[in-house]
Design a protein around this nucleic acid. Structure first.
Lengths: 347, 347
DNA sequence: TTTTTTTACGCAAACGATGCCGACATCGAT
DNA sequence: ATCGATGTCGGCATCGTTTGCGTAAAAAAA
């Protein structure tokens, strides 16, 4: 089968010791020029590559980091992963991706599996189901490097990278208000998630600043973060069945935004005439939709990059780190037809 | 820092040898019930996890496989990866994802990096730039397990998993013809890619079977597989500038299909009235577009699953494998407005 | 009681690479 | 001629785990 050449093979072939070969390959000054040349050329010829696993065992590090997200088939995360990869690649780290599919159990299994020794650090965006953090706390207390991004928790003190969810939600809600909508509903993920909380706050603040009363019947949570279509469907239907039907929906998630449009289309509810729509999404396809969707876009790529830089700093730090940063990046609102100015009602 | 407990620690604490601990943990019959209990309980208490790196070094395998694709931010690939992950996870394998971004060089670097010893096998979908395969041939000749999926090559004899691109292209072209379109252009990726070749053949066959002459001016290649928006834009513009302008476009790729619609919208070309559109895509969002897109969908998840099963079979095979399978899965056409029946021209 | 068998465990090598330390030869200086 | 310095290399331990082999003590058979 597949048997790569080792340092031993070279040593044997050249009548040297493994230590000499090792040193020759790393250009140690203790090795004569001729021996070096001999070894290096032989290694070149037989395409010698140091065994990364042996190195990992020796150096007690694997030069790989893991990222734990709920779904890579989500534009925000695939963009973030591109950012992660770009930094990791340049710094000589492998990236291992694992998906929780919004399941608490899967998340635990993945993290345990990864952490034992096979990765040097973790980049985490919490699953929608997760509201306990012992599996991270244990690791973190032992000094294992973890950086949270996007969906974070206050319960663990480490570096964090987030979008300004509050401001993003505020801006898009305000945009809806400015466009003439007054009865704005909010469709969001599990209530305990950091992003849900912040976006809800931004939404509330925008209402407050514009003297629109907050109505908690207008807030619907999808606890599976958009994984289950029926959940969104039911939520939206119950919104539309309210006595005082909303005239706009602000949705707080990629999948939610899109499936919101799908449900409205299915129910033949006209967007934006009957109900306007705007929400968080990083999909490049939203502008092609019917109607083009107004979205808040997160700087996913940059978030991935920043989080990775912080993680590598953590990994390569000599001393235990006790000062942690929380980096907040700005979002951007893209206005499209789905939130076009409200037409005066002809009753 | 983070120092997990080892078998040695347990041995020292319990006054045993490492071999006894090791055997106790694996339930060897040579160890007395009491000692076993002692060791297992201690291990449990201190949350012992065998060091996967040490195991890899010993067993000369890492229980991880790598997948090399061009882009995870592509619905086809993210779905395929979900399939890969689902099988790998159940069989106890890690999945390492690396992206070539359609670059030949990146692909080589990634493959070399991965193959040396850190992964047990490779799942590959070729980048658009790749038309040389030495980096795979070298590995494959040494018995390194590789399975190709989606974008494959004839030059390497191993397991392969593909969609029935010929039939898919045939079906969707025929659908366009049946809808009344006669001047059907074809926008596709790099000409040398297996998927491009097969889809072109299917397209040609459908034309032939319906007595429509093939016009090579109607075929446009985007050599970067949709990575560069300008490339698609130029290709589509030049199609629209032909004396005998096509009345439909069949596109052969996720990104191409979508950016085709984007360009047409931008140019204010009405779809399908002026130009109809249909193409390969696995995006769940195409039905929400303006207009809803007619697409050929590949069984991405199943392809990922099948490829992974084959790869693991290859990895775990005792003997060198010489008999290889090529598995072809069927595609499905979803008809929507973008290829609605052609209206009679009012000239 | 003696011999054989069984039970239960330890020793050491191995996986690939690194690095400390020691060994030897050569050379210049005394 | 002897000593120390220098240059060049090998031996060995190490990382964590598994496993073949050896062996002591206990149990069973004689």
């Amino acid at each position: 089968m597949y048997e790569p050449i080792t340092i031993k093979d070279i040593a044997k072939a050249l009548g040297l010791s493994t230590s000499t070969v090792s040193r020759a390959l790393r250009g140690s000054y203790e090795i004569s020029a001729e021996t070096k040349k001999l070894v290096v050329e032989y290694a070149e010829q037989f395409n010698y590559r140091p065994n990364p696993i042996a190195l990992s065992l020796k150096e007690r590090r694997s030069r790989s980091i893991a990222v734990v997200v709920c779904e890579i088939a989500n534009n925000y995360f695939s963009q973030a992963i591109n950012g992660i990869e770009s930094v990791a690649y340049n710094r000589g780290y492998h990236v291992i991706i694992s998906q929780s599919h919004e399941s608490y159990e899967r998340e635990i299994v993945n993290v345990e599996h990864l952490a034992s020794r096979s990765v040097d650090g973790l980049l985490v965006s919490l699953s929608a189901e997760t509201n306990q953090f012992d599996h991270y706390k244990n690791l973190h207390e032992k000094g294992f490097p973890i950086v949270f991004f996007d969906r974070i928790t206050d319960e663990i003190e480490t570096h964090k990278v987030v979008a300004d969810n509050y401001q993003g939600a505020y801006n898009v809600t305000k945009h809806l208000i400015n466009a003439g909508y007054k009865k704005i509903a909010h469709l969001t993920s599990a209530a305990h998630l950091s992003i849900s909380i912040e976006r809800l706050e931004g939404y509330k603040a925008a209402l407050r600043d514009n003297k629109i009363p907050f109505n908690d019947k207008y807030v619907k949570n999808c606890n599976h973060g958009g994984m289950i279509y029926n959940e969104q469907e039911d939520a939206i239907k119950s919104l539309l069945n309210l006595k005082d039907k909303p005239d706009a929906i602000f949705s707080g998630g990629d999948k939610l935004t899109v499936s919101c449009l799908a449900v409205l289309n299915e129910l033949k509810v006209k967007v934006p005439d009957e109900v306007a729509l705007a929400g968080f999404s990083n999909s490049p396809l939203v502008e092609l939709m019917k109607p083009g969707l107004t979205v808040v876009k997160q700087p996913a790529f940059e978030m991935g990059q920043t989080a990775t830089e912080l993680l590598i700093k953590l990994i390569e730090s000599k001393r235990p780190v006790t000062e942690f940063e929380k980096i907040v990046l700005q979002t951007e609102v893209f206005e499209r037809e789905s939130s076009a100015k409200k037409k005066p009602k002809k009753k």
